[in-house]
């Protein structure tokens, strides 16, 4: 608190100022979100990314990873843009634009699936730990601590070594790294609510613990979980690329995957730098979109956090 904060009279909550019917927390959060330009930019990027990923078969001029024009690629040159191929070819002789579009698809699928798995498992552990407490809490949190203390790269390497090189390995590795994040988040949120008056009131009404946790406390944790999931998607997109960059993904080198495309582009960095530029920018912009959206959501749901 600065002297300023201490002195200015408390501003009335924004919901009352703007009025409007049924100013619930979600509604006022939505209003704050719409007024945040960075959040809108993020949302637009995310929306575009999802559209491109979902509509890839319609948008892409060709099929991915075909190496159809492999004959046109020589050891010293990769064909650039032409009428047929707006961005040219990649070094395996597939259409670069097609590869990029399908790359969005694989990023989205792996990112979303791994985050969903990480969220589901993490949330379950967190709810069990925070909702039941006692020894269940202790055991789960120790487990989570151990999981957290393993560097994510190690986790990924172990999973890939166990299951072989495939997108599934990447998914599992990324979700394993996310489990502790969500578990801690939910547990902390439940614990913070446990002492609150409304929970005590519900208990005094004779409601069962499970009803209270599932019906009342969990919905209140939805906001932070949503924020975390969005931010996690940003790191997931980068992690997917990083792990496939390391060769842990699909063994097929010509696969339409941004990280993979960056690796192969390196051999031709001096002759065709754009081969590296496009997928790199795609990864960065997508991650930026999810980050901006996540930060904006955080500020919208908790106006005091803005800094």
């Amino acid at each position: 608190m600065t002297a300023l904060d201490a002195l200015t009279p408390q501003a009335p909550p924004p919901a009352e100022v703007t009025g409007g019917g049924g100013a619930g927390p979600w509604r006022s959060a939505w209003r704050r979100l719409r007024r945040n330009p960075a959040g809108i930019v993020g949302a637009v990027i995310v929306l575009l990314f999802v559209l491109v990923a979902v509509l890839a078969p319609l948008l892409a001029p060709f099929r991915p990873a075909t190496s159809e024009w492999f004959g046109e690629v020589t050891p010293t040159s990769v064909p650039g843009p032409s009428d047929e191929h707006p961005l040219g070819l990649d070094s395996y002789g597939s259409d670069l634009l097609t590869q990029l579009i399908y790359g969005a698809r694989s990023s989205l699928v792996i990112g979303v699936v791994s985050t969903a798995v990480g969220l589901a498992v993490g949330a379950l552990l967190g709810v069990l730990a925070g909702g039941i407490g006692g020894w269940v809490d202790t055991v789960i949190m120790r487990l989570v601590d151990v999981l957290l203390s393993i560097p994510s790269l190690l986790l990924a390497v172990s999973v890939a070594a166990l299951l072989g090189r495939s997108p599934v390995s990447i998914m599992l590795a990324i979700s394993a790294a996310q489990v502790p994040i969500f578990a801690r988040l939910l547990r902390a949120s439940l614990l913070a609510q446990r002492g609150q008056d409304y929970v005590v009131a519900l208990r005094s009404l004779g409601l069962r613990q499970r009803r209270i946790v599932v019906g009342h406390m969990l919905p209140n944790s939805l906001g932070p979980v949503l924020v975390q999931a969005t931010l996690t998607l940003a790191t997931a997109v980068i992690e997917v690329a990083a792990l496939s960059f390391l060769g842990l993904g699909d063994p097929n080198p010509a696969v339409a995957e941004w990280g993979r495309m960056l690796v192969t582009a390196q051999d031709r960095l001096d002759q065709a730098p754009w081969l590296a530029l496009y997928p790199g920018i795609a990864i960065a912009v997508t991650a930026l979109g999810f980050t901006l959206l996540g930060e904006a959501l955080r500020e919208a749901l908790d106006p005091r956090s803005g800094r």
């Binding site: 990083a242 990280g259 582009a265 960095l269 930026l288």
Partner: peptide, 22 residues
């Protein structure tokens, strides 16, 4: 710092290598 978080290290490495080295 936002850029630093969203630009993957390996992409930054490739960029630096291309621009400043090559």
């Amino acid at each position: 710092s936002l850029l630093g978080v969203v630009v993957p290290v390996f992409f930054l490495a490739v960029l630096l290598k291309y621009l400043l080295a090559i």
